[in-house]
Simulated assay, not measured.
Amino acid sequence: MEEHYVWVTTRRLQPGRLEEFENAWRPAPAPQGMLRAYAYWSEDGQEVTGVSFWDSRDACDSWRSSEPEARRRAAMAPYVVEEREGFYRGRELSLPGVGRG
């Protein structure tokens, strides 16, 4: 079974600042080793959870300590009230009665 390397970050935002936050959070250039990324936000727009999939922990750690990531975090900081993050390893679950494709 394929193993995934995932970085999850949840940020609580200042009220009414979601659009400004979204303009600041996209990394440029795309991080090397990042396979895909998703963003999910609460209905009120005050909490955003980002989930990124990586080809290895080293690739994720390299990005997290890079200068482009430091600049990105600085650009987001004015809109963030609180931040929680963590790195995980895991796999897709097989659900009974749910086919793929």
Score class of each variant (00 low, 15 high):
Ser65Arg: 12
Asp44Phe: 00
Glu47Val: 08
Trp41Tyr: 12
Asn23His: 13
Ser52Trp: 00
Phe53Pro: 00
Glu69Phe: 15
Gly33Cys: 07
Glu47Met: 09
Glu47Arg: 15
Glu92Val: 11
Pro68Gly: 10
Arg26Ala: 15
Gly45Gln: 04
Thr49Phe: 12
Ala59Leu: 03
Glu43Lys: 14
Ser56Pro: 06
Gly90His: 04
Gln46Tyr: 02
Ser66Cys: 09
Glu47Asp: 10
Pro27Asp: 06
Met34Thr: 01
Arg73Met: 09
Val98Glu: 14
Gly50Ala: 14
Ser52Ala: 15
Arg72Cys: 10
Phe87Glu: 09
Glu85Asp: 15
Arg100Lys: 06
Ala39Lys: 14
Gly16Arg: 01
Ala74Arg: 10
Arg71Asn: 13
Ala59Ser: 14
Ser94His: 07
Ser56Phe: 05
Asp58Ser: 12
Ala59Val: 03
Gly86Trp: 07
Pro29Met: 09
Val80Lys: 11
Glu83His: 11
Ser94Thr: 15
Ser94Gln: 08
Val51Ile: 15
Arg12His: 08
Gln32His: 13
Arg84Ala: 11
Glu82Thr: 07
Trp41Met: 14
Gly97Lys: 05
Met76Trp: 02
Trp25Ile: 09
Tyr38Lys: 15
Ser65Leu: 10
Ala30Ser: 10
Tyr79Ala: 01
Asn23Pro: 05
Phe53Cys: 00
Cys60Tyr: 11
Arg91Phe: 03
Trp54Lys: 00
Asp58Gly: 09
Phe53Lys: 00
Leu95Gly: 05
Pro96Thr: 06
Tyr88Gly: 06
Glu69Ile: 04
Gly50Phe: 13
Ser56Trp: 07
Pro78Ala: 03
Gly33Trp: 00
Glu3Gly: 02
Phe21Lys: 01
Met1Phe: 10
Ala28Cys: 14
Tyr5Leu: 05
Leu35Gly: 11
Phe21His: 09
Pro31Cys: 03
Asn23Cys: 13
Glu82Ala: 12
Gly99Gln: 06
Leu95Thr: 08
Thr10Pro: 08
Gln14Glu: 08
Arg89Glu: 08
Asp58Trp: 07
Trp63Val: 00
Ala75Asn: 05
Tyr38Asp: 15
Gly33Ala: 01
Pro78Ser: 01
